[in-house]
């Protein structure tokens, strides 16, 4: 455990140098989305969605989506470059650390970044008066779940590809479609049957639903358990896969 914490500390020390440039993407980008779609497009959505004003309706989805973006941001290029360009993982593997420590420490740092981005967004959402329930802080737990559910398999992917072109391909064919068609901007009920099932399978929609329930103060019922189970399944499978990939790269 202390070994893993030492890895986490390494990433935190690194972050102290780079947080300014990443603050832009973690804070400004979601804010722009909220203004552009929530306020701008929302003004044209008469009657809101199911009686909720459009801005208030998309804010919970945007928080889950922010967790996704932060997770992907930390799990793609940084991981790839720690293997291919900067060789940081290999340097860590030369120290008395287990593969699980190296991977776990980095994932822990990613979770820190994810919850930080979500918290900032939540604060902004509160300032806009879009939070409807005392359950709202629970969205941070949802953000952590979504974050790990996305980050872990992404880490496994980034540890396996041979060129960073494949990371762009992941962004284009998986991340962007997931953020646009997981019920963040419009209810997935209007999607064709097949695409709806795709949304059911991927993690973001489950996070969006849980997050929306927490902020609007509606009860998810038994379906809530299904959402949590789905997200946990992604987390577990992702971590396992990432561990296998890391082992193959670091233990020869």
């Amino acid at each position: 455990m202390t070994a893993m914490l030492s890895v986490l500390e390494f990433h935190l020390v690194n972050y102290r140098r780079t947080w300014r440039s990443s603050a832009l993407t973690t804070l400004v980008m979601p804010l722009l989305v909220m203004l552009g779609f929530g306020v701008g497009v929302g003004a044209y959505v008469e009657g809101g969605v199911g009686g909720v004003p459009y801005l208030d309706w998309i804010v919970p989805g945007l928080i889950a989506s922010t967790a996704l973006q932060a997770a992907v941001g930390e799990a793609t290029w940084p991981v790839f470059s720690y293997f291919e360009w900067l060789k940081v993982y290999f340097a860590q593997a030369a120290a008395p650390l287990r593969v699980a420590d190296i991977l776990g420490g980095h994932l822990a740092f990613m979770l820190f970044r994810i919850v930080l981005s979500a918290a900032v967004f939540l604060a902004v959402a509160a300032a806009f008066g879009t939070l409807h329930s005392w359950w709202a802080p629970l969205t941070l737990v949802v953000a952590l779940l979504v974050g790990l559910a996305v980050a872990a398999p992404t880490v496994a992917y980034a540890a396996s590809v041979s060129s960073d072109s494949y990371l762009i391909i992941l962004m284009r064919f998986a991340v962007l479609p997931m953020s646009l068609f997981s019920g963040v901007f419009f209810p997935i009920g209007s999607l064709p049957e097949l695409l709806r099932w795709v949304a059911y399978v991927f993690p973001l929609w489950h996070g969006v639903e849980l997050s929306r329930d927490a902020i609007l103060g509606t009860s998810p019922g038994l379906l809530g358990l299904v959402h949590v189970a789905c997200l946990l399944a992604w987390c577990a499978a992702g971590c396992l896969l990432a561990h296998v990939r890391f082992r193959r790269r670091l233990v020869i």
């Binding site: 959505v45 459009y54 391909i169 962007l176 479609p177 068609f181 209007s190």
Partner: peptide, 28 residues
């Protein structure tokens, strides 16, 4: 791999068109 990156660039605006234009458009 770079071929795929280059050609698939057209996908982004198409996805936005379907999500915002068609999906949110249904609400507008």
């Amino acid at each position: 791999a770079y071929w795929v990156v280059l050609v698939s660039g057209f996908l982004e605006p198409v996805l936005y068109l379907f999500s915002i234009g068609v999906g949110v458009g249904a609400l507008i």
